[in-house]
């Protein structure tokens, strides 16, 4: 069975909010939209976003690390938000595991948002229905888009490739490989929701150094291939007077 999900690399996320804005742009104008704002240019603005990037500081100054933390619906495998919905508007798709809201059925009771421990759902005050990340279900199957663009808008926008999209049930997918090889983890597994999205932790960077970088092959002033100093042979001091 397929379970589409995002794997988010906290090691490379720079907190630029490109995914936030591209998500808002795509989804407010697309199938899942609109994502209305209230008083966007006034005091106390408010609005619906499917994706937020938060920033945390870990450690005590001066030994701190800044962690940027993108946060959206995790498309849980056992989503607590789904069974509580009285109308069946919230559902998890059999075929790819995406958790969606049917806006035509939702009565706006907000019970699902209470049942999500991650605060991933946002109520649309204008349409009076519950909204949330759709994993860009209207992009990823769109045959009009070139194959390499059939990915969520946030993944396309990320300048550091911190977001990997794929099937976490397919052991050979890039997403599964990243989880396996780079210590991918789920958020708060103790709630038993089994989130599908994973996060890759901060880790020591790998550095790739090839032989010619070691000898500075392209540097005309390089010294590495000079003969070491030989005690027996003449030096400049010996011949100068």
């Amino acid at each position: 069975m397929t379970q589409l999900a995002l794997v988010i690399d906290l090691n490379v996320c720079v907190g630029c909010h490109a995914c936030v804005t591209s998500c808002k742009q795509w989804n407010t104008s697309g199938w899942a939209g609109p994502l209305p704002d209230q008083r966007p240019y006034d005091e106390d603005p408010s609005g619906v976003f499917f994706n937020r990037v938060q920033t945390y500081e870990v450690g005590c100054y001066p030994n701190t690390e800044t962690v940027h933390f993108p946060k959206s619906c995790l498309h849980c495998e056992d989503p607590p938000c789904v069974p509580v919905c009285p109308t069946g508007a919230s559902y998890k798709r059999e075929e790819d595991g995406i958790v969606l809201v049917d806006y035509d059925k939702c009565i706006g009771c907000k019970y699902c948002s209470w049942a999500c421990p991650y605060g991933a759902r946002e109520f649309d005050e204008l349409g009076k229905v519950m909204k949330k990340c759709t994993l860009c279900v209207d992009r990823i199957y769109d045959k009009n888009l070139p194959e390499e663009e059939r990915k969520p808008a946030c993944v396309m926008a990320c300048p550091t490739s911190a977001r990997i999209f794929g099937d976490v049930h397919d052991a050979d997918s890039e997403a599964s490989r990243a989880i396996r090889e780079q210590g991918g983890y789920q958020l708060q597994p103790e709630w038993g929701a089994r989130p599908s999205n994973h996060y890759l932790p901060r880790r020591k960077q790998q550095i790739h150094i090839s032989d010619d970088e070691l000898v500075r092959a392209d540097n005309p002033l390089r010294k590495e291939d000079e003969e070491p100093f030989d005690q027996q042979s003449e030096t400049l001091d010996d011949v100068a007077w």
């Binding site: 603005p45 408010s46 609005g47 938060q54 800044t66 946060k71 759902r121 946002e122 109520f123």
Partner: peptide, 10 residues
């Protein structure tokens, strides 16, 4: 450091 937005939200 920041919740990611300066206004309100649901």
């Amino acid at each position: 450091q920041t919740q990611g937005f300066m206004g309100g939200s649901f």
